[in-house]
């Protein structure tokens, strides 16, 4: 760190200016912080005690949410894996394909799931299927990029060894790179799975089914005690996925 360079002070000034500008744009007011106590009161009075009796009716929506997140991310992983090899500099068949695939993945990644969801709800109708599609497409872009970076960072030695035994390019890449990157692929996958559970909630708000749809319905009908249970179930689901992911990674490593 070199704090005494003029340039460092210019960066500090730029950051201060950008923060001040952003606060203006977002109507950020320090005085608003005192209103937070109202939120605490609102939650304490309206959300508790929770309506535990709604649990039986929530089991199926929770499972639908789990299925949306799993199917969307698992199919995305299956599709992203071959794309990621085409989008990595060290394994792409040719430079043109490399740039085309990277561009394609960037496009998929830059469109949020909610936008895909809004389109698919119109095209495919209400329900979990459009939500699966929205999560699937966005995650092809995300996992494709993340895995392509793992492929690029893989040790080239085993690849060279596979070439030297006479293995073809694709076979050599598969056997020399996949074992190296597999624990990190799983790590990325489980993280995206966890994110997809939260995303499927948002997609439920626009008619994508699952517990998200239940949550927005209860919120809009001021049934906050049921929302408490729904939020807790979502938290439980995320924790279970996280623990399962950690268990699988431990087994694999």
């Amino acid at each position: 760190m070199n704090w005494f360079k003029k340039r460092a002070w210019i960066y500090v000034l730029l950051l201060v200016f950008f923060s001040w500008w952003s606060m203006g744009k977002t109507e950020f007011e320090w005085s608003n912080f005192k209103e937070f106590s109202n939120a605490v009161t609102f939650i304490r009075e309206q959300f508790f005690p929770a309506s535990w009796e709604v649990i039986p009716a929530l089991i199926d929506p929770v499972l639908v949410t789990l299925a949306i997140a799993f199917l969307g991310t698992f199919f995305a992983l299956l599709i992203a894996l071959p794309f990621s090899f085409a989008a990595a500099k060290n394994t792409a068949a040719n430079p043109l394909l490399y740039y085309v695939v990277r561009f394609f993945l960037s496009i998929l990644r830059s469109i949020p799931e909610i936008v895909f969801g809004l389109i698919f709800v119109v095209v495919l109708g209400l329900g979990p299927f459009p939500a699966v599609f929205a999560i699937l497409l966005h995650n092809i872009g995300v996992l494709g990029k993340l895995i392509s970076e793992l492929v690029e960072a893989a040790d080239p030695g085993p690849q060279e060894a596979m070439k030297s035994v006479g293995a073809g390019r694709r076979l050599g890449n598969l056997f020399s790179i996949v074992p190296q990157i597999w624990p990190n692929v799983l790590s990325h996958y489980f993280y995206r799975f966890e994110v997809a559970i939260r995303t499927s909630l948002i997609l439920g708000f626009i008619g994508g089914g699952g517990i998200g749809q239940k949550l927005i319905n209860d919120f809009n009908s001021f049934n906050y005690a049921a929302v408490t249970v729904e939020v807790m179930l979502i938290m439980l689901l995320v924790i279970i996925v996280d623990l399962f992911g950690a268990f699988v990674r431990k087994r694999v490593i």
């Binding site: 040790d155 030695g157 085993p158 060279e160 060894a161 596979m162 030297s164 035994v165 006479g166 293995a167 076979l171 050599g172 056997f175 020399s176 074992p179 190296q180 597999w182």
Partner: peptide, 24 residues
């Protein structure tokens, strides 16, 4: 071919690594 840094495939067993010699 044998290499200075071995170039074995990590996370595979000894036997699996040896069997890759047949790939060509």
């Amino acid at each position: 071919m044998i290499f200075q840094h071995f170039h074995l495939i990590p996370r595979l067993t000894v036997q699996q690594n040896i069997l890759t010699g047949l790939f060509g």
